[in-house]
Design a protein around this nucleic acid. Sequence first.
DNA 1: TTGTATGCGTTATCAC
DNA 2: GTGATAACGCATACAA
Lengths: 343, 343
Amino acid sequence: MTCAESEPALTPADQKSPLITLTDVAAEAGVGESTVSRVLRNHGSFSEKTRAKVMAAVEKLGYVPNKIAGALASTGSPLVAIIVPSLSNIVFADVLSGVTKALEAKGHQAVFAVTDYDPAKEEALVAAVLAWRPAAVMLVGLEHTDGTRRMLHASGCRVLELLDIDGEAIDIAVGFSHHEAGRQTAARLLESGYRNIAYVGHDLKHDMRSGKRFAGFLEGLANAGLELAEQEIRDAPSSVSEGRAGLADVLSRGRPIDAVYFSNDDMALGGYFHCLAERISIPDQIALMGFNALDICRHTPQPIASVFTPRIETGRRAAELFLEGAPSQVVDLGFTIVAGATI
Amino acid sequence: MTCAESEPALTPADQKSPLITLTDVAAEAGVGESTVSRVLRNHGSFSEKTRAKVMAAVEKLGYVPNKIAGALASTGSPLVAIIVPSLSNIVFADVLSGVTKALEAKGHQAVFAVTDYDPAKEEALVAAVLAWRPAAVMLVGLEHTDGTRRMLHASGCRVLELLDIDGEAIDIAVGFSHHEAGRQTAARLLESGYRNIAYVGHDLKHDMRSGKRFAGFLEGLANAGLELAEQEIRDAPSSVSEGRAGLADVLSRGRPIDAVYFSNDDMALGGYFHCLAERISIPDQIALMGFNALDICRHTPQPIASVFTPRIETGRRAAELFLEGAPSQVVDLGFTIVAGATI
DNA sequence: TTGTATGCGTTATCAC
DNA sequence: GTGATAACGCATACAA
């Protein structure tokens, strides 16, 4: 942490000093280039003495190996591409955390992009990241354009599809069944005696997984010979405000409602806030159920009933499977219904 | 979107088919390699006829340019490294969104890493990303180890420090003054007549910026000849639960408190929930003030007073300055106090 | 307008 | 244990 010499007053952009290369280090250490390479990667054989010489030279020159060149010369790439629909939803940030944490321990680098839930944009981004010859591409969900699939197939790199297993996987899929989650949620509400059930959701056009949960939920109701009493599907991404407005809308229609299923916890939290503001008693007058079991909803005055989803675990597991060189497979990490105090 | 031929049943990992290169395309199109390169980058001159030939060959072979090779051959790298402290805090996800959105439009790729608020880990990550010879490195905050600074200086790439301007910038800093935000927050509470003010915060050891806000807040009180009535600093990252527990703790001490300043909105939301649970009237019995003006806190039954911070804008602006090749500078994007209904 | 040759900074394959 | 040398796939003069 000592820095005896004062830094030059140059802007980083100014100094055009050609960066130190392997060749410089070799010259400084008085050894061959391949020896430096071997020492630095701790690969092959060399004497302790040369090792010291090389390390001294590296230290003295402040050499940082150029991975661009390394990746080109060697066969395998240490890059992993991660493409998520959004970052405003904490769910994807969690997955990203899980992935990067597992990856950086093994010296891999994450290359990152956001699709905004647009399959066409996803295709463009896949093309862009594929140009970096990543060892693996991680995507969210199983729904992709034909072009995306084709490129992925042709690339020859591993493909990890996260957070969904309801469908055909390209290579490896890690997640859980949203359809089943919806179905079990319906069963849970019915079990508690609710019969006049409403749904408040966000745009299922773009978020395919919330659509699958909804379908599963309807199936769960149908199994008991029931239908939804009311439904309100907002034409916007999920948010607290949409959830709040959505519940207000449903209740304004006057039909008796005793439970509401929200497309996720952000929406459910909005509904919860509406009830607080309108002094609607929970769960006596209305029961609320969300999805994801976000930390925030566990600390509301009444914890909101939800479904815990293994998000960080999904990211971590996917990274591990890739690192292990695991064969193509589908990994079901499951989910857990969390009762809370709102049902 | 048509896919006439059925895909081979091979696992992506199986097919070792050597990928298509520029040379293959050149051969297929019956032109030279440089011609293909020029057409693909739309740089230099070529006839419309050869362009068509090249594009046809590219299409037919499904060629994807290798940017690794491209980056090595050309001088500049299209990679931008982004290193954030965490992703569980939506603030950094916002910044990341802003950055990537502005970047991808210009064909740049984001390389990404998370420090977990650990300066030593940040140093290691900076070393790791520098190996990819990025055109720029984006970091959060102005506090870094000497080693980090030295590497950054030596790298010769642009350095963008985000979300803070209280201190010495390496190259370009984009953000606002946390010290000033804290000071103005104190002034605002005093203006509303509050005098028995408590602070509930999270670990300032790691989150330097919350420490700066706290210092500014204390200064603001001192300017009016006041001191904090109570303070509770949790030894954990900010979260709703810590905020809730922190406020409970402060109130349990029995001293009269009429306003509480939280280190951020996550903490403030926890405090708000505590008040709801304990039927503490807001702002009559206690006023609450947070920081960041997160969307979620704008939709609670009573919107929580806070300070809006330009997070996405910070990311966007930083990316733009880099893209413009702007000179070293400090950009103050400011902040805005949002009254809400809790003060 | 187009093709050829050289180099980018490594890794890997050899001889030594 | 060590050091030349040939790839790696592309961009960039430069020549044609």
